[in-house]
Design a protein around this nucleic acid. Structure first.
Lengths: 104, 104
DNA sequence: TTGACATGCAACCATTTAGTTGCCTATTGT
DNA sequence: ACAATAGGCAACTAAATGGTTGCATGTCAA
């Protein structure tokens, strides 16, 4: 779980996930196109995404195909966001109560 | 959005959010209790959470009260996770298709 | 009013991180 | 066979990050 959050912390990596979401199964070079980064930098980002299990790869000849694995992202929603859903419901009223308490 | 993801990337900060979720409106010193960190380190974490709008604070006399703001977390779910929900549904079949393609 | 308590500010340090360059290996098409 | 293509590995650098210590400020309570 820690690795997933850390992987998602970087904007370049989120954009790589966006690209895979737009078209799944891209090669490393395809993912590099149009980015202001060297191929090696992208390789490192993909390795981090892979270690967080957000991306799965298959080798096909000399190419490496990258696939988005949305399951960990879904788990964030399941385990973490839902935890704060109820809090969201009462947030406004709590803040309101606090603002009144402030004038004591 | 970038700030929210970065704020969530650190385990200490997520645990601070957990603590606030368990009991909202704690002071800085209360949030420090039992942590293997100096007060100043916690202050920095809370500042990052505040800047990401995940925590809101009110000063009450000499105390600073910290409140969880779950809205940005909820927005992650809205804007980002749902984007990958459909992808999750087709992920397995896509992977399967790829595995077959591999043997061409 | 003065000491204790709650917090703020700033300088400093070590580690991690994001990126680079340079070179090596493996596969493919002609 | 061999040049071009796709990717891998390692060393290095600059900047960001997470943490510390030391001191200053503001508020409360006796």
């Amino acid at each position: 779980m820690d690795e997933v959050f850390k992987a998602l912390a970087d904007a370049s990596r989120r954009s790589l996930l966006d690209r895979l979401h737009a078209r799944n199964g891209q090669t490393l070079n395809e993912l590099c196109e149009g980015l202001a980064m060297t191929r090696q930098a992208v390789t490192k980002h993909l390795a981090i995404l892979e270690q967080a299990n957000l991306v799965t790869t298959f080798k096909h000849g000399r190419e490496k195909l990258h696939y988005l694995n949305p399951v960990p992202i879904h788990q964030i929603g399941e385990r973490w966001i839902k935890k704060f859903e109820r809090a969201k419901l009462v947030a406004l009223s709590e803040l309101k109560r606090q603002l009144e308490k402030r004038d004591e």
